[in-house]
Write a protein that binds this DNA or RNA. Structure first.
Lengths: 213, 213, 213, 213
DNA sequence: GATGAATGAGTATTCATTCAT
DNA sequence: GATGAATGAATACTCATTCAT
């Protein structure tokens, strides 16, 4: 699973795939990302993968199962990873500055997103598009994973280092800004180059100043 | 065209529609917004509109033509309106404060979005979803409409009232924050109530502080 | 509906059928009877009817709906008709002899079965074959329709004109004998001629003697 | 072949089966009886048998070959056994009474049917359902096996101990009644208990009286 | 102009059968 | 012999589009 997408390393969805099934998996990611789930037929996936249509259904119960095999690792990992990873490392240290906090959320995610653009595209696509799938996704975001985000924010509030708005507003400001950055560079103008470090610095600075009390 | 959606007032797409065709148009907006373009059948549109399926194809060449009749006004107007309207009124006055500038962008758009939620939903859906449609949309955003936004920002930069980042970054920070606000309240958690004035104030404050030099 | 099958005259299932849909209906009866429901594809039905496959699904929700449009008149009428018709006519007269009773059940049904052989074949086929469909059928036989049969039998018991076995046994003896007659002549050796009147007389005599106390 | 089904003892179809193939055979009988031939997939048969799908096709040319391996013993034996077995034992004794004759047909078959319910179900299912299979079955009922039945009946006729109807009518009356008994208890209301001895007595009595001259 | 019956290409999915290991 | 991955033809069903009325 080396050459697909980092998030699928060691995920149960891609564990026991045969060669052909792996081709199907890759083919589906490619086509779902390019044309959307609803606009991609199983026939296309099979042809693009160079296998028979029937082979898809040996491993994947149905088309939706194939979609969720692609999306599940995100449902399980994306928010948790974004929110938690750094706190686990640094729960003791406790962020001294708001900059450190925001920076670790935004900056450290850079690599992650770059490696998973296609799958992320599908994630966003379906989240936006399909009500049924959206609900399934929202329910799949475990509430507990929001806890460490809240803990950190509350700690800053106590120390008067952040504005006294609701945590969900603060959450929104951070992630909308991140989403704008990602959308512009990875989704909308995919081919244009940009100065990553500089823009990321600006993004952090924008958020930090915006959230200062 | 009073009771549909403000953006369609005086647009050529809805000019010469008969009564039945208008019903089709409204029905399509409603269903596309709710279920997505690909998940809405022409039969549903017809039934929901109380007309026969055949009637759809008298006015609209095909299903895609119906979609673009809904989206074209956005392609022509949405960004221009968002960006320009206020400058036309106020180009002479020249905003004294960054708050005024940001506030007029965010606050004044409130009504506009609220009136066009459904059509906007379709716009976002298809923008995110369909490559062909996305390209058509991007090309349809006339560069010249960005001019007045740039003029305003450059003026602030001269007066050292805004950070010295690229205009496209500044544009992104403002609109990503706006998009986050809209997405949360109109797309994701549509049914939850919130304190509009307060959150809008916070949103303006966040952007203004974030963009201060 | 003149030339199909008598039971469908005036039944809601065949009321508003277009010409082509009628062809589909007839085609389905023919093929279901010949090859069985599970062995008949919608494509075959359409081809045999000389229409497009899609036309089937305009009128009939799905293949099972088509099957039950054929079978429902039986579920509604067959047992009731067999059991009731004569009692309604003759409830006052009260059968004087067991022969009259048995005879009216067996004899009067002759015409009915001859006219509906094909549909009846399907009925028997699916009753025997598909558990799900069998359950649906058993539930669809209204219990109340058994009442008049029981009333008659109980009346004979009081007058000591019939054996004192359970009604369900008596029911079984009558209908198994009838079924044997029908099966032999209409299902198994369809093409052989036989002396209807004579065999029917024997059949009645067999049942009557068998049920005498 | 001890624990499968009595009729398969010593039949060539089950002679040289390996362990796994025997499991397949049993599994197929079970599933065909429960769900019907057409509704049972080879995958199900394999899974239920705990072997691989491919193994089925090592012994059995195809699915139909598997079906006929189950049915052939019936085609060869069922009617002959039903009709003949007792006569071989008892041809000399010559039945003194019609009751003895009918009783030996009906009563002695009890055990046989109880032991072979499942395979018999498949037999009836496919007989009713599939024209091709039905023809194959009818041809497989060797006329000569009817001989001993005819001999017995003719003997009764000479002695004026039975009605003077055609032998095929008499045959039908006996077996239709038997079939009704079996159908009710083994096929239709499988789970309900009943008083076997009593109902069997009634059944014999019904047939005997019905056939008395 | 409006209808809705009819079409037929297209969809996801199933399944008996093959065959390389 | 045994396996189960792979096949591809077949299946029920959908849907945008056409056209006679």
């Amino acid at each position: 699973m080396h050459d697909i997408i980092s998030i699928y390393a060691d995920s149960p969805e891609t564990d026991d795939l045969t060669d052909k099934q792996l081709k199907i998996f890759k083919s589906a990611i490619e086509l779902f990302a390019k044309n959307g789930y609803a606009n991609t037929s199983t026939k296309e996936i099979a042809t693009n993968a160079g296998v028979s249509e029937g082979s898809i259904f040996k491993k994947f119960k149905n088309k939706e199962d194939l979609l969720f095999s692609i999306l599940n690792p995100f449902l399980r990992n994306i928010l948790p990873k974004v929110v938690n990873e750094f706190t686990e490392e640094t729960l003791q240290t406790n962020y001294d500055t708001l900059t450190d906090f925001v920076s670790s959320i935004l900056k450290n995610r850079n690599m992650f997103f770059k490696e998973n653009v296609n799958a992320l595209k599908i994630f966003v696509d379906e989240f936006v598009y399909d009500l049924k799938i959206r609900d399934k996704m929202i329910k799949a975001i475990p509430y507990q994973y929001m806890k460490s985000f809240n803990d950190q924010v509350n700690s800053f509030k106590k120390r008067k280092m952040i504005v006294d708005w609701t945590n969900s507003e603060i959450f929104r400001f951070i992630f909308a800004t991140l989403f704008g950055y990602l959308a512009e560079h990875y989704f909308i103008f995919e081919s244009l180059k940009w100065d990553e470090d500089l823009e990321m610095d600006h993004t952090i600075e924008f958020v930090v100043k915006g959230l200062q009390p």
